[in-house]
Structures are given as C-alpha cells and as structure tokens.
Amino acid sequence: MTTFTVINFTLLTILTVTALVIARLRALYEAAMLTALSSLVTASLFVLMDAVDVAFTEAAVGVGISTVLLLGVLALTRSREAVTPRHRHLPAIAVTALTGGLLVYAAQDLPAFGSADSPVQRHPVTEVYLHQSQKEIGVPNTVTAVLASYRALDTLGELVVVFAAGTAVLLLLGPLTHGKRRQNLDLMEYKVLRVVSSLLMPFVLVFALYVLFHGDFGPGGGFQAGVIFATGFVLHGLVFGLDKSQRVLPPAALGSLVPLGLGLFVGLGVVTMLLGGSFLDYGTLLPTGGPAAQHLGILTVEVAIGITVAAVMTSIFFAFAGRRPTR
C-alpha cells in the first residue's frame, strides 16, 4: 500500500459515492452542485494520474461552464424530478448488472494499472512522442506537440464538432439579440461581489493568455485558454448582467469570432499545401524548417483553437442566459 494507492482509492471511492448520491437525489439543483463536486474530484484524479493538461480543462469546464449551464437550464425549466415509477427500475438494474458484469469479466485481460510494459507503453509511437518529438518539434510539453502537430488533423475534427455544437445551440435557442430582458440573476445589490469580480476579471483574462502562450512549455494550450476566457465572460455576465456584458462583447462580434478560429486553422492547412507540403505540414512554413517552423504552426493552431472555443462557450452561455422563463 503506497501513498499513491491510498489517495487514488480514496478519491475514486468519493467519486463513486457522489455518483450514487446524485442518482438518488430528486432535487436537481443539489444534483447539479454534486456534479460540480464530482468534476473537482475527477480533476484531482487527473493530476494524480499525471494528466495535468486534462485536469486543467476538467476543472474549468466541469466546475465552471457545465455547472453554470445546468443551473441556468434548471432555472428555465423545473428543478424537481418526478418519482421514477417502480416498473422502470427493474430493466435498468438488469441491463446495468449485465453490462457491469461483462466489463469486470473483460477487465481481467487489462494490464495492471500503472505497469510500464502494457501495450500502450510498448507501442512504437510512445518513443516518437516522448523522445523523437524533442528533436522534431522541440516542445517540452509533449501533450501540446501531439495535439497541435502530430495529430493536428484529429484536433481540427474535434474543433469542427465544437463549432457544430455551438451552431446547433444557437439554432435551437434563437439568435443572440440585444434588448430589454428580465435579469436572470439580480446580483447587482451584492457590492462585495461586484468589486471583487471586477478586480479579478483582468487577472482571469491575463491568465488565459498565459495559458494560451505558455502551452508549449507547461500545462496549457488552446482548449484550456478558450475555456478560461469563457469562464471570465460567464463570471462577468452573471455578476453585471447580460446586457452589460453584451455591450462589452456584442453578439455580432462574437458570432464572427466563432468561425474565425476554425477558418484560421483550415487556412493554415491550405497555406502549408500551397507552400508545397501536405495539409498542416508546418515544416514548410519557414524556409529553414525544423522546430522553428513547428513552433510557428503550433502557436497559430493554439490561437485558432482558443478563439473558437472561447467564442462558442461564451455564445452558448449568452444563448441560455438570454432565454426568458416561459412559466
């Protein structure tokens, strides 16, 4: 029993128990808050399993954005769940017991947790990503190197999904418009909160920029920075009201930022093709090639990701917050 095992086991147990409580709760506000708690525990587990970049994202997304979205939707709809009829429990229990049993049976073939000679670790690509990348790309944070260079096309696909999801939300909830609307949360009377959040706002944005441009050397990158930017605007919108924060960030500008990032990403790919390389082959960007060109490409891609993610997340929040309750 090492310290690692004790901490790991404790956190996983807390996570499972939280999930059990969430499943039993019928008050959905409480369930949403406990979901935020489970996200925090998950982020701690990610740190424990050496995935600092992922932990970063999970903390900002799970606790910041998805909780705000859930609470906003609960304010628009009903926050109490009806009693689940008894006859629905039995099939669900049967299915989960069967699936769980199959998974546990199949897990016997999984390599031991943390073993250094599992198929994942022995695969030739490990060597490339961890050591060869230092010569080819020269970025200490290998997660950034893989995300923005080796698997850039994959990342482009993910960004398209984010873009499509943002568009779908805007289509479903109508365009972002100016105008008089009921204040969703009247936080204007909380003076302390207003002073503290206007004090923290610039630091949140500077931190997002730091995360964006420091992603080569430490944990960080476009996805994290975009989400942190968005949490900054969500905070602003919650505290100062939607009208004020849409004056800072007009919906038209936001709407044009969403495709701008994606366009920048695809445009970079086209430029590398015009320069005689293949799609997203950063080596062609500079005549000297090598790590310098890779750096340029990675930085452009990270900025593009940051713009699209931040714009999509912020406009999703605006779309939900601008909706009037229909009751």
């Binding site: 909380y190 302390v192 909160l193 004090l199 923290l200």
Partner: peptide, 10 residues
C-alpha cells in the same frame, strides 16, 4: 485571500 471570504459573504 480575496475569493474565499467573498464566497462565504455571498
């Protein structure tokens, strides 16, 4: 130091 007391106060 800045955020903790703010949250409690709120």
């Amino acid at each position: 130091v800045v955020t903790g007391p703010t949250a409690t106060h709120l």
